[in-house]
Write a protein that binds this DNA or RNA. Structure first.
Lengths: 203, 203
DNA sequence: CGGGTTGTCTACCAGGTGGTAGAGAGCGCA
DNA sequence: TGCGCTCTCTACCACCTGGTAGACAACCCG
């Protein structure tokens, strides 16, 4: 009954939907449960987003925009390649700490096929181009191990997202050891891993 | 009508179910479509696996066993740490080439929570222990960058599985460039990445 | 005050889901 | 031959899914 009104409601729905899609997957999440989490009826949700796919679209766009903002902020200060990569990773981890389902949702976006992922990655296109140029420059200057910069970026992406989303695997690997499975430990680990992987052979 | 009989049918169903679960996710895959792919009615499938969860269980066990075999074979010959890691990665990639839905299914196992993943990883427990001992020994001998071996193994896992399963992401990063997105290219990339990440700082 | 727009609801539906009940066909074995 | 077991099927069900239709209420603006 209470009328919250337009834009606020939309963003609340999108946030809750990202949580649900991240936790249960796109197919697994139901409009009924999402709307219940928001505190409205399913038909109210369908008033804002006429189909489930429309809702997904809005989530992808919102997530892409949010991630792009965080990364852009992290890249503001200039730095040496390794430090720059580290700053981006830590920004993504900070986002994941504040919003645990976020990385899972991004992974789900990848799972849903290129179309879905493009809708997410649209906002990140300029950042990707910057990253590739930057990696290439680092390689030319001998600061980064030489190889295809786009593929390197891809592998970096998978390592970071994987370390954020494969919590079940982690607990199977090291046991339910809180001190070792904590986000902070994983963050430091993946930062060290990436720094080592970027290092040129003679450094 | 044709009676194929017991064990053969079971394995056929499990193979097809792994494909379906990998492609569409556990929730997204339906017993109806799986049985149709096998060429039987849903109720015949339910005769072999009384519930969908029973079917999942069988898939997890079969997948774990298969992966354990491949890795064990790849580890038969002794080798220097980097080469050993490379051999394991190439073995997993060979399996993925022969059976594309396989890595996706493994990732889905991780997504379904620790319980599900443990059922998959049970067969891999001894290998994990071997891997950790091996990494530790390599660190002690100065052949591998020093850090928590269990966490390192986890990060290696995420990098390899990620590079195998995030195909949509890859095409968004480098475009639909077949030559660059090919399995072979990704394989070489991730091998180089891992070798670099394992290298000790002074090598 | 009054009419239109915006927002939220109840009621309902067709189709797909995992799962049950039980009939019958083919087989091995006495 | 005939009994019993294994296997596969048809028929069915309760439930949940995404989505439609339309009533009704609150707000803004003249």
């Amino acid at each position: 009954m209470p009328r919250t009104g337009g834009e606020q409601r939309r963003t609340t729905i999108v946030e809750e939907a990202i949580r649900a899609f991240g936790r249960e997957g796109y197919q697994g999440a139901s409009l009924d449960r999402i709307s219940q989490a928001v505190g409205i009826r399913k038909q109210t949700l369908l008033y804002y987003f006429p189909t489930k796919d429309d809702l997904l679209e809005a989530c992808l766009a919102a997530a892409g925009q949010r991630v792009a903002e965080e990364i852009a902020t992290a890249l503001e200060a200039p730095a040496e390649p390794g430090a720059r990569a580290e700053r981006v990773i830590r920004a993504v981890y900070a986002l994941a700490e504040e919003w645990p389902e976020f990385p899972m949702f991004i992974r789900e976006a990848g799972r849903l096929g290129p179309n879905a992922f493009d809708r997410f990655a649209g906002a990140l296109d300029p950042l990707r181009d910057r990253a590739i140029e930057f990696l290439q420059a680092g390689m030319d200057a001998g600061q980064i191990r030489k190889q295809d910069p786009a593929l390197l970026l891809f592998t970096l992406y998978t390592a970071v997202i994987g370390s954020l989303t494969e919590a079940s695997v982690l607990s199977a690997f090291v046991g339910a050891d809180d001190a070792r499975t904590s986000l902070r430990r994983r963050e430091d680990e993946v930062v060290a891993f990436v720094r080592a992987a970027l290092r040129p052979p003679d450094a």
